[in-house]
Design a protein around this nucleic acid. Structure first.
Lengths: 327, 327
DNA sequence: TTGAAAGCGCTAACAG
DNA sequence: CTGTTAGCGCTTTCAA
């Protein structure tokens, strides 16, 4: 049982192959009559297009390549979700990869993507240098990554961090902690720290960086967080502590640990996460990134590609790990 | 700046186009000399293959199509992770979709996948009937889904449920609850319920089904769980309650709610989840599905396709939401 | 409105 | 070992 091709339906409906092709691509050019004839045969033979051949002939696909560091962070999972959904609206299909161990491997991976003639690349991986990204001859959009001469979509990290700080101050916290699992001054997310530090300036403040919590669900991360909470509780015994975490998963881990150690939330300690991804929709106060807008912008910037940075607003979503403020 | 093709490098190195093709596909056939010559030019011209053309010429791709219901469940996110990784070993690329609203739409989506000549389909969606799945002319593997004449990969759900039940009994629970967000007797996961019920037979037992918790991270799910915990605590005031949840995310939600309502874990209530996905690696006792094995089997069954069911073992991973047993 | 024919970039007989 | 050539299935001038 061979695959039915455009030629088969051409023959069967007594028109030329080109006409059938037009049926799909420029139906206005066809007489209503031929159109119906073709339609009937297509249905009859249960034909469906071969996108591969189509792409080859046309030169560009509507496959889009996406590279995530991994999918263990709820922000990533949700963004992928949204990218797929937004892509679907434009009939794009998403090929997804997770990051490799070395820049070299990652480059190979992207070359594979390119070998499928992807229409564009959406990257959340940190592995490749801006220079490399600029060298691809398809649209490249980075999300929450270092900048360069390509399309960047970032959330308003500074404001996000600032909102978090201000909220914790309003709630009467006397000591402030930011927990991060590793940052780089070039990354947009670094501005979260700056924003937070700006808000809490001249108050007791501490920046804690723990690379071991890159996967917040690992046993290691649990152990680290446990120790960390103990230290913080001991160190700031008299004032309420306001903690801002670089992502929700970390915040969630922190919350669990506080509960375990009997620190009242939000009485003794307040927690604010970042992302407001569905996984944390309930009940952790978080700075929301508007993930769906980011996905939409990413997808839409693929056609009509203009390298530049977009900053999407960040908003504080108050839930149960912070207080009522003091207004 | 045109794309460099196989022909360009043929010309430049003074061999025929076919020879260059062989360089990639059957290098043993070439003399070391030509091989080197070609290699040099490839490097010089920075050539990289066009997989699309390749697939078209060869007839089959190494794209594989994956359809998930969504990515909000940690089991899904992790499985996708593994599928990508396992696929990479064989140089497959994964096109991922999330389920559509209707069977019709979902079929269209799969047709799109097929139009890219995917080598096979890995499905976690429930939308399509077995009959439909059987009708595709590429290998189809379903994971934890209803059976049919295709490759199925399921975990040993009955044993999994049974292990959970037995553990709770050992730990001295006097009342048993299973919380599920919707099931169907045809689904493999239904056997989790059977296994659990078998283990706790003739003891106080209750099955709670709440469709509203399909996305355990929704506000709605939070509200439902809150009410549910209250009811359970009230109803079983004298005996320790053993709760088995149909997935880890639900278990995690339950844990949080118990803590909030002041029910000691594992003193007053014990919790066992299902999946043991990384998201729950810490600290919820869970029945592990061996997700990476499932992914591996799925990927490997794509070549040398033999429709049948594989059942991968389920094991109980004891963590902090259950007690020490009583042996 | 329609058809003929030349590609898209690569592979795979077949012949040498 | 290597070259010639005919496709893979579709799109797109160009001409009619």
């Amino acid at each position: 049982m061979k695959k039915t091709r455009i030629g088969d339906i051409a023959k069967r409906s007594g028109v030329s192959l080109a006409t059938v092709s037009r049926y799909f691509n420029q139906p206005q050019l066809l007489s209503a009559q031929t159109r119906e004839k073709i339609e009937a045969v297509i249905r009859e033979l249960n034909y469906s297009q071969d996108n591969l051949a189509r792409i080859l002939a046309m030169g560009k696909s509507n496959l889009i390549g996406v590279v995530f560091p991994h999918l263990h962070l709820s922000f990533y999972a949700e963004l992928l979700n949204q990218l797929i959904d937004q892509g679907n609206r434009k009939n794009y299909s998403v090929i997804v990869y997770t990051s490799r161990a070395s820049a070299e491997d990652e480059l190979a991976l992207i070359k594979t993507l390119l070998s499928y003639r992807v229409k564009g690349l959406v990257l959340l991986s940190h592995m490749l240098s801006p220079g490399t990204l600029e060298s691809f001859d398809v649209p490249v959009v980075s999300i929450e990554r270092r900048g360069g001469n390509y399309r960047q979509i970032n959330s308003d990290n500074f404001t996000g961090g600032k909102l978090a700080g201000e909220k914790l101050i309003r709630d009467g916290c006397g000591a402030f902690v930011h927990i991060n699992n590793g940052y780089h001054e070039d990354w947009p997310s670094f501005k979260r720290i700056l924003g937070f530090e700006y808000a809490v300036r001249e108050r007791p403040y501490e920046l804690i960086v723990e690379q071991g919590m890159t996967n917040p669900y690992s046993r290691e991360a649990g152990a680290i967080m446990s120790r960390l909470v103990r230290n913080v509780a001991e160190k700031y015994a008299r004032e309420k502590v306001g903690v801002f975490c670089s992502n929700d998963d970390l915040a969630s881990l922190l919350q669990r640990e506080c509960i375990k150690q009997g620190l009242a939330i939000p009485g003794r300690i307040e927690i604010i996460g970042y992302d407001n991804s569905p996984v944390s929709d309930y009940p952790i106060t978080s700075v929301a990134q508007n993930i769906s807008l980011m996905a939409q912008l990413a997808i839409e910037s693929l056609d009509n590609y203009i390298p530049h940075e977009s900053v999407v607003p960040a908003t504080l979503i108050e839930k149960e790990t912070t207080g009522r403020g003091s207004e």
